[in-house]
């Protein structure tokens, strides 16, 4: 049997109208930030995933999630940092699940065919090594490294985005670069010899 409820249409309409107005205002404010921050969300995701389609999916999801929770964000000036963290976290999750899926599939897969000459020419050994070295960095360091390389952000801006002191951002970047250098020394030595 259908459940019936008593309601006061006029009051319900008033509150509905107020809610709609509020939603419209939130949406307007969010859209103002969208053009500015959509790129950032994509690039953070791309920095982690290095795949355009996956990064786009993650950026979309991050932006929609940010929109759904936008009214809960007390300090709207911290939107960029908040969005960066959402994108980064979603991208990490997606990267992990992709890795797991890849592991599952490779146990059944046929031997991979040898790359063509064009593929070999297009691939850069250093980029590949660098990418895997970046993946191996601790999350906090990785995020600072990506943000500092992105869109010409200064370290001060990175610190503001992440809501950490400048010194913390500096030390994270320093140790991130140091760790990368420890994993990639031979490449530069060999390229210099050439």
């Amino acid at each position: 049997m259908e459940e019936l409820v008593l309601t006061q249409p006029s009051r319900a309409a008033e509150s509905e109208w107020a809610r709609e107005t509020e939603r419209a205002a939130v949406r307007r404010e969010f859209e103002e930030r969208l053009a500015e921050c959509g790129t950032l969300a994509y690039r953070v995701a791309y920095g982690v995933l290095r795949n355009s389609a996956d990064a786009e999916d993650v950026a979309q999801e991050a932006l929609l999630r940010a929109f759904r929770r936008f009214d809960r964000l007390r300090d709207r000036n911290r939107f960029r940092g908040w969005l960066v963290r959402i994108s980064f976290r979603l991208a990490l999750d997606r990267g992990r699940s992709a890795k797991r899926r890849e592991q599952r599939e490779t146990s059944w897969a046929q031997p991979v065919p040898a790359p063509t000459t064009e593929e070999l020419a297009a691939s850069s050994e250093f980029q590949t090594r660098l990418a895997s070295a970046v993946d191996a960095l601790p999350e906090k360091m990785r995020l600072v490294l990506l943000l500092s390389a992105m869109e010409g952000h200064t370290l001060e801006e990175v610190a503001v985005i992440l809501g950490v002191p400048l010194g913390t951002a500096k030390s994270r970047l320093f140790f991130a670069r140091k760790q990368l250098a420890e994993k990639l020394p031979c490449h530069v030595t060999s390229s210099k010899k050439l």
């Binding site: 959509g38 690039r43 791309y46 355009s52 980029q127 490294l145 990506l146 390389a149 992105m150």
Partner: peptide, 9 residues
């Protein structure tokens, strides 16, 4: 790292 991060949107 700049190449990794500054992909075209």
């Amino acid at each position: 790292v700049r190449q990794l991060t500054n992909a075209d949107v």
